[in-house]
Design a binder for these strands. Structure first.
Lengths: 242, 242
DNA sequence: TAGTTAACACCTAGGTGGAAACTT
DNA sequence: AAGTTTCCACCTAGGTGTTAACTA
């Protein structure tokens, strides 16, 4: 995932659907992003792999993205797909825009937090998320990603360009193609290859970002409003992601 | 003020600052727009005046714009200038976008409402604002305006074009000027007139919209958190606007 | 050399009044 | 004739990867 000094959105954005909330209870929904391991990585071009390149850099100030619809009732949250597309990542450790601060060339795992309102009174973008009764965390292994300041891999670049509306200007059909190549590719029978690029189409794609497709929408199930506790959380998580 | 079927922002937008709230109490801030009188108007070009042209059209479904930061603590509200720039006006009585529905060619008065959270549980964009203890309404006479679907008056048009960033394309310095006029106006000594147009500069400006300048920021004072009642409201209002 | 930064062209998304077509 | 609607060029605001310059 690209990170910049000014802050960069994730693409694709994390999107989840939640069930099992108490419709009349108020909740905050928040997201943070935690290191997967204690390593720094480098991308080895000839083998198209990320390899360990030493230990992780020193920790950065923890940041929390509080979903802008927070707080809202369980009913409201459950009725919609919850999108984190406004969340931004930065490598600026002195960031004062409330963006999530990460190290480049490290592996990270996003987490979604569901926080009952009465447990979230001290919720803040610059404080760690509280834990305990009334607070649940969810994470999906397929959403692990590696941070970069510039793409290391042409397939990832291609995928982003083809999928992100804001990158339309770099698509093959755009002005980017030059002369002969443009003409050749304008023939339909020559085109089926990369225009519809998905992860399934590229065996052996390096895990700069793993299974971005799955980001498009995950379901979170809470057993039921009464058993809303860290324990039932892990059971639920296990059954959905194991 | 322009109103359209799809919904049009007000320009300038209503902006207020509030003091006297209980910093730790939660409030909704909302806006509605009420008829000034029971009349329909027409613009008489030769006299540059709005004149009564019969009785008002039949009432439209009442709508409320709930400020998107709602609910928030008194502290949060008092720290910022509260802007209603996302609010939209429409003449579509069947509108389903939650916009405020008005009749064209009528006079209206925006009202700002401060609603203590425990009094606003049934707050809805399609229901009238509750009244009683814990709910206060504020309105400023200089924010009265007349609705139109097309400007009736070249001075208003000019004012909007000069002040609204989104209308920059119609400014004199843009491509709009034609030949000679452009050349003439490019001389600095010929320019001081309308480029810095304000209401003060135009004596006798017709009240299609009255004192837009004052929209830029009004202060609302609540006597103090303890006397938060409709009665103290009207006293405060009187002292600030009388 | 490997990684980062800043400026940039090219997009999406949506807010302006103008002008002509349309309605009543 | 008077008012409304639709389409449009022209903006603001901001999200993309590219590129070349920069940095350690």
């Amino acid at each position: 995932m690209i990170i910049t000094k000014a802050g960069r959105r994730m693409f694709p954005a994390m999107r989840v659907k939640i069930s099992g909330l108490d419709p009349h209870q108020q909740y905050y929904i928040a997201m943070d992003i935690v290191p997967v391991d204690n390593k720094r990585y480098r991308y080895v071009y000839h083998s198209s792999k990320w390899m360990v390149a030493g230990n992780a850099d020193s920790p950065v100030p923890p940041r929390v993205y509080i979903h802008p619809d927070s707080p809202a009732s369980g009913e409201t949250w459950m009725r919609q797909v919850i999108s984190f597309d406004k969340l931004k990542l930065t490598n600026n450790e002195l960031d004062d825009q409330g963006h999530i601060i990460l190290h480049s060339m490290h592996k990270y795992q996003p987490r979604v937090h569901v926080i009952r309102k009465d447990c979230g009174d001290d919720l803040s973008p610059i404080k760690p998320i509280p834990s305990g009764e009334g607070v649940k965390a969810f994470s999906f292994p397929e959403t692990v990603f590696t941070t970069v300041t510039a793409y290391q891999n042409q397939q990832i670049t291609r995928l982003k360009i083809d999928r992100n509306p804001f990158a339309k200007g770099f698509r093959d059909s755009g002005r980017n193609r030059m002369g002969l190549e443009a003409l050749v590719e304008s023939y339909a029978f020559w085109r089926p290859s990369l225009r519809t690029l998905t992860f399934e189409d590229i065996p052996g794609i390096p895990k700069q970002e793993y299974a971005a497709r799955s980001f498009r929408g995950r379901d979170i199930f809470l057993a039921n409003p009464d058993s809303f506790s860290p324990h039932s959380l892990s059971r639920n998580l296990g059954s959905k992601d194991g």
